[in-house]
Simulated scan of single mutants.
Amino acid sequence: MRRREMLALSLALSLASILAAIAGPVAAATALTLHKDPTCGCCVGHADYLRAEGFAVTVIETTDLESLKRQHGVPPALAGCHTILAEGYVIEGHVPAGPIRRLLAERPDIVGISLAGMPPGSPGMGGEKTEPFVIHQIERSPGTETPAIFAVE
């Protein structure tokens, strides 16, 4: 390396070090584990969307999602095409990043949240969004017929 190149590299490394000190430590991405059927492509789209939103997503393929949903207290009426587990919560279906961040920040005493079904235009799904997404709470008390609304986007 020539002297000029060495000087430029040294300057760049020094600048990077100063900027890192000013910015402080980088926060670790929130870990999400997305359980999906091996044949479902929209679930991969949702995982990609969540990664782009700063989450660390691990995808696990399973052919028995129903057992996983039952085990984690997801009522059939609130089921989505995939189940995400994060920090003790269940996130069911194509929930946007905002309600997930809110859930993990506020930490309510619930099982989790759900965007039931596969609404067009939701993150990872094709199509056009035609109405607000209604995100429901999954309550801890079994048999709750009408869960409260957690967030609307």
Rank of each mutant, 00 (worst) to 15 (best):
M1A: 14
M1E: 12
R2Y: 11
M6H: 11
L7W: 10
A8K: 11
L9A: 15
L9S: 14
S10T: 13
L11F: 09
L11S: 14
L11V: 13
A12F: 12
L13M: 14
L13N: 06
L15A: 14
S17A: 13
L19E: 12
A20F: 09
A21H: 06
I22W: 10
A27M: 08
A27L: 09
A29H: 04
A29E: 11
T30D: 03
L32Y: 03
L34S: 05
L34G: 02
H35M: 02
K36V: 03
K36I: 00
D37K: 11
G41W: 10
C43I: 08
V44N: 09
G45Q: 06
H46N: 11
A47L: 00
Y49R: 01
E53N: 05
F55M: 04
V57A: 08
V57G: 04
T58M: 07
T58L: 10
I60K: 14
T62C: 00
T63C: 01
D64L: 06
L65E: 02
L65Q: 02
L65H: 03
L68I: 08
K69F: 08
V74C: 02
P76A: 10
A77P: 01
L78P: 04
A79L: 02
T83Y: 01
T83L: 03
I91D: 03
E92G: 04
G93Q: 04
V95F: 01
P96K: 07
A97W: 02
A97I: 02
G98S: 14
I100N: 03
R102T: 15
R102P: 05
R102Q: 15
L104R: 03
A105E: 13
E106W: 05
I110H: 07
I110L: 10
V111S: 08
S114P: 00
L115D: 01
L115W: 04
M118F: 07
P119D: 09
G124K: 00
M125I: 06
M125F: 04
G126E: 06
E128I: 14
E128T: 15
K129Y: 05
T130R: 13
T130C: 07
T130E: 11
E131G: 07
P132Y: 06
I135A: 05
H136N: 12
E139W: 07
E139L: 11
E145R: 15
E145K: 15
A148Y: 07
A148Q: 14
I149A: 07
A151F: 15
A151P: 01
V152T: 15
